[in-house]
């Protein structure tokens, strides 16, 4: 009786895993650097509108956001339209002037991104824009989503 011996590959069939932690760490650092952990807690509702002819803003550090929309009240209710800058709701529209002027001095190429709820009216935005003119932050951007 003839014996057939199974031929075996000479090399071991294992992937070397010693470099895996390095690879994983590299990915980890990438995501750590790109993550923005703390976003502004929105106190107003902002559903952006859609538009077709829009431009991308690559330099995010030039941006400063102003949120305009109906205020979120406890119990899922919505109040009147309010302006939010950074973390606070601005009750006094006239305060925007100094606020934005200070930001402009820190970042002379400031772009103000206006994130306005689609259901809001133009009146409040007009007041904000007037304040922006007074603060000489002229570059603005109406934030919109891309039309699908």
């Amino acid at each position: 009786m003839a014996h057939f011996k199974k031929k075996q590959a000479g090399s071991k069939q294992e992937i070397p895993t010693s470099a895996m932690p390095d690879v994983v760490f590299m990915l980890l650092f990438f995501f750590m650097v790109t993550t923005v952990l703390r976003e502004v807690t929105l106190k107003v509702r902002v559903n952006l509108t859609q538009a077709e002819n829009i431009e991308k803003i690559e330099q995010k550090r030039l941006l400063s956001y102003i949120y305009i929309g109906p205020e979120r009240l406890p119990g899922n209710r919505l109040g009147e339209d309010k302006v939010q800058i950074d973390d606070a709701i601005i009750e006094d529209i006239g305060a925007i002037r100094t606020l934005m002027y200070d930001k402009l001095r820190e970042q002379p190429k400031l772009i103000v991104s206006l994130r306005v709820d689609e259901a809001s009216e133009f009146g409040l935005l007009t007041d904000v824009q007037k304040e922006l003119q007074q603060a000489s932050t002229f570059r603005i951007n109406y934030s919109t989503r891309r039309e699908p």
């Binding site: 980890l28 995501f31 750590m32 993550t35 829009i54 431009e55 991308k56 803003i57 824009q129 003119q133």
Partner: peptide, 22 residues
């Protein structure tokens, strides 16, 4: 890694740019 993967949002801001008059 998985934690940062989940929390990362790579989004680009888009919008209509305008320059206000003085």
């Amino acid at each position: 890694l998985i934690f940062f993967l989940v929390t990362t949002t790579i989004n680009v801001d888009t919008g209509i740019g305008l320059v206000l008059p003085p």
